[in-house]
Design a protein around this nucleic acid. Structure first.
Length: 204
DNA sequence: AAGTTTCG
DNA sequence: TAGA
């Protein structure tokens, strides 16, 4: 189980999602991927591919391509609107005391070997709402820094069912995924990790 | 091995 | 500067 941290608007909530709810969520995501297929984002300018695959649900989805990072209402490949955010995730958002309703839910899929470099979630037009992150499947080695790119970082393991809330002064904290511990969970057929990130994009 | 900095 |  991950360490409990709760300070400066950052909360790491080990086991916040029950195993039954984790299974239901994994099934929700399977259906979302069927409607909104995974795509491989690339870095702005360089075109270097991410090692994670992505899709979204909600009125807006986060995408990255050569032109940059942005939120958009349609899938970059199919052109269709993103599927709705599952009701159980909207309820989680509300239960955690987050305002209004989430507008975007980024779905990051980590196969074995996938990583995500240190970054801030700063493409939103408002930082007044927290970012809520849900881990499913294999345990991740999560790296957590401060609001400045340089400075000390710490490593925290995030297991299936853990929830991280980035709020208040911690809303713009640097974070990333160093590595996924393959075979550490049986939640997802074929292994791997799913991360769900609920966000408010526009002021409420 | 883990954490930090640099490069493109 | 969500990669290496």
């Amino acid at each position: 189980m991950a360490d409990v941290i709760e300070a400066d608007g950052l909360a790491i909530l080990p086991g916040r999602i029950t195993p039954a709810e984790q299974r239901a969520l994994a099934e929700d995501i399977r259906k979302i991927i069927k409607k909104a297929p995974l795509f491989q984002p690339v870095m702005p300018r360089t075109g270097k591919p991410f090692s994670v695959e992505m899709t979204n649900c909600g009125p807006l989805g986060w995408v990255s391509d050569r032109a940059g990072y942005r939120y958009q209402p349609n899938h970059p490949v199919t052109g269709r609107p993103w599927p709705a955010i599952p009701e159980r995730l909207v309820k989680l958002w509300q239960d955690l005391g987050a305002p209004a309703e989430p507008e975007a839910c980024l779905v990051n899929i980590y196969a074995e070997g996938a990583r995500l470099g240190m970054h801030q979630d700063r493409d939103e037009a408002t930082f007044d709402a927290p970012v809520v992150s849900v881990s499913l499947g294999d345990t991740a080695v999560f790296r957590l820094g401060g609001t400045e790119r340089r400075g000390p970082t710490r490593s925290v393991r995030l297991a299936s069912g853990d929830v991280v809330v980035f709020g208040g002064p911690s809303r713009l904290i640097y974070h990333g995924i160093d590595r996924v511990l393959s075979g550490s969970s049986r939640l997802i057929d074929g292994g791997g990790r799913i991360n769900l990130t609920l966000r408010r994009v526009n002021p409420f």
